[in-house]
Simulated scan of single mutants.
Amino acid sequence: MRRRRRPLSLTPLVDVIFLLLLFFMLSSTFTRFAEVDLSAAAPGGSAATPETKPLFLQLAPEGLRLNGRDMPLEALADTLALAPAEGMAADAQPVLVALRGAVSAQRLTDLLVVLRAVPGIRVTVLGAS
């Protein structure tokens, strides 16, 4: 004698999907990510005075160098705030940022957030080398 197949019930499947949806909704965090303002160079902008020497930052995946000296990212804001602005009255101190190697977007964003907190600087990101 042949066994008769019962129709498949979808009720347990719907329950499992609902429980998974509930679990993922409750375990997720809903945070607002910080925004970093990026501005393009404006045509006809005033150039820095010849006496003003730009600061040179090299950002690598594992390190950071300011004018050739290694330093941690946490100490950068204090160092830039103490840096003398030689020959500058109204202009902002130019800071050139060069990316070395495979720098992640998150690492660059972390650097830009630190630089945004320092008053009186103008940041230019040069690109990868």
Rank of each mutant, 00 (worst) to 15 (best):
L82I: 07
I121P: 04
T11Q: 13
A34C: 09
A83F: 02
A81G: 13
G44S: 09
A105P: 10
A41S: 08
N67M: 08
V123N: 04
Q58K: 01
L82H: 05
V16A: 15
V125P: 01
L66Q: 00
F24M: 06
R116F: 06
K53F: 13
T79K: 02
T31V: 12
P54F: 00
P43V: 07
G63K: 03
T124W: 11
E62Y: 06
E62A: 09
L66F: 02
I17Q: 13
T11K: 05
L115P: 05
R69E: 08
R5W: 07
A83E: 02
A60R: 05
I121T: 07
A89H: 11
G44H: 03
R107M: 03
T49R: 14
L21Y: 05
G68P: 06
L96Q: 01
G63S: 09
E74C: 03
L126P: 10
T11A: 14
M71F: 02
L64G: 00
A85G: 14
L59G: 00
D91I: 14
A41L: 13
S27Y: 03
A98V: 04
T31R: 13
M1N: 00
L99K: 00
V118Q: 03
N67Y: 08
R122H: 08
A34V: 12
F23K: 06
F23D: 10
A92K: 14
P43T: 12
V16Y: 12
V16W: 12
Q106R: 09
A85L: 06
F33Q: 14
F56H: 09
L96Y: 00
T79C: 06
M71K: 04
T79Q: 05
L76I: 06
R107W: 04
R107C: 03
